[in-house]
Computed example of a mutant assay.
Amino acid sequence: MPELTVRPAGSSTEVPPPSRRAVQAAYASVVSATFGFIPLHATWALGIPLWAHEDRFREWYAVGGGPYLLVLSGLALAAGVLAMSLVRPWGMVFPGWAPFLGRRRVPHRSLAGTAFVVSAFLLLYTAWATVQLATDFDDDGIFSPWIVVYGIPQFLVWGIGLFIAARSYHRRTSPGRRAGPLG
């Protein structure tokens, strides 16, 4: 990928490109969100009880489990777009085709803040799931407890990758930015 230096509209300074590490972290976060999270949750949203206790799953699904899982999948897709925006030019300036926003600056604090909050949530959820796995590994829930063994590494990649990309974005776009190897 060629290194792009972006000059947001209304800005007299250029924003340096993200580091290779930040780009790799963002892509890892996107892959974790879209290919790690969405397929399994979309399978469940379609009513397929993969790695679930069928009777308990059917009861849960009948009272709104499907729409809930579709919303979660949509949020994961949005988190993937968020991660990419931290390392692509459209995270600095809205694309020209965007209604009402085209070619305007993206508010960098809002984008970086959202990414930091989502990353913190993902990492706190991962910590909670790890504690639950260690203290209450039973088979009484809807889903097999072994699903957490898959989910913990997937959420770690997602949360850490998003944090690294957000940190890079924040450092590169902040007034008085500091150049550095994590840039």
Rank of each mutant, 00 (worst) to 15 (best):
L133Y: 08
F143D: 04
P107H: 03
R171P: 04
R21I: 14
G161Y: 10
D139P: 01
A62M: 07
A115Q: 05
L69I: 01
P39T: 13
R178D: 12
G36R: 04
P18C: 09
A28T: 11
V148C: 01
E3V: 11
T135F: 08
F155C: 01
V93E: 15
P95K: 09
P95I: 00
H41C: 00
P39A: 09
L124E: 03
L50G: 00
P153H: 01
W51S: 13
W44D: 05
W128A: 13
Q154I: 06
V31P: 00
G66V: 08
P107G: 04
P18R: 05
A52P: 01
V71F: 12
W44M: 01
R88W: 08
M92T: 13
E3Y: 12
T130A: 15
G141A: 14
T114I: 04
F94V: 04
E54C: 00
A127C: 11
G102P: 02
T114Q: 06
F121E: 05
L4W: 10
T130K: 03
Y169H: 11
S11A: 15
F100M: 14
L86T: 05
S12W: 00
W128I: 12
P153Y: 02
A134I: 11
A22T: 10
V30Y: 02
L111H: 04
A79E: 13
F37M: 06
I160M: 03
T126A: 07
P107L: 02
Q24S: 14
A22L: 06
S29C: 15
P17M: 10
Y61P: 00
A78C: 13
S32H: 03
A112G: 14
L4F: 14
L40E: 02
A9L: 09
I147C: 07
I48N: 12
R7C: 13
V87S: 04
L123Y: 01
H108Q: 08
P67R: 07
H170P: 05
A165Q: 02
W51G: 00
F143L: 09
A33L: 10
A52N: 08
V131P: 03
V23F: 07
M92F: 07
T130V: 09
G161V: 11
A120P: 03
S119W: 06
V15A: 12
G183C: 05
A120L: 14
L72K: 05
G183P: 01
A42G: 03
W60F: 15
R58M: 06
Y125T: 12
W44I: 07
Q154F: 05
A62K: 09
A115M: 08
W44F: 11
W90M: 08
G183H: 07
Y27W: 15
G161D: 10
A129I: 07
A45F: 04
H170L: 13
T43A: 12
V87K: 03
L133V: 07
G96N: 05
P89Y: 11
T34K: 02
T34R: 03
M92P: 00
A83G: 07
L111Y: 05
W158N: 09
D55L: 08
A76E: 06
P145H: 08
Q24W: 12
R56L: 14
L182C: 02
G141T: 02
I147W: 12
L122F: 10
L182V: 05
A165D: 04
W44Q: 02
L77A: 14
